[in-house]
Amino acid sequence: MVIVKRKTLTLAERLYLPEILRGLSITFRKMFQPKVTRQYPEEPLPTNEVTRGQPRLRELTEGHLACVSCGLCEAACPAYAITIDGQETDRFIEREPERFEIDMLRCILCGFCEEACPKEAIFMSTELELAGFTRESFKYGIDKLKRSTEELAPRMEYIKRINERW
């Protein structure tokens, strides 16, 4: 059994006022200390390669995606956010998506698509902000999802590194 011994208060403590003044002096000093608030839109959150933001598609060469529209991410997606229509192409990879659409309102940023992708075509970017006026505007097509290899390179390196561990 735990016995808590009550401290007998001194007269100064029972009068409250000295203690109140002590508290007031603490809050007064706090007013002049540096602020810890982040002024968000001007000072964005720091991001690094571990940041799991919104999914983006990697652009392999000029104007072409790395995606071969295999549909693995579509199948892996627990929120059914991804819709892919594939088509044939003359390029070496033979298939590419005609339509690659992610409904950002459904996406839960879980990163399963990134894990499922065999072609290093889809990655979780560091982009976090999402806002719009209509539901339609949240259905991102290829034009909105396409990012250059350089932009996604840190994340690619990171994924490769952690995959080597298994």
Partner: peptide
Amino acid sequence: KFSAWMQLRY
């Protein structure tokens, strides 16, 4: 304002 400053906010 003052409450914010006392809590290290703006």
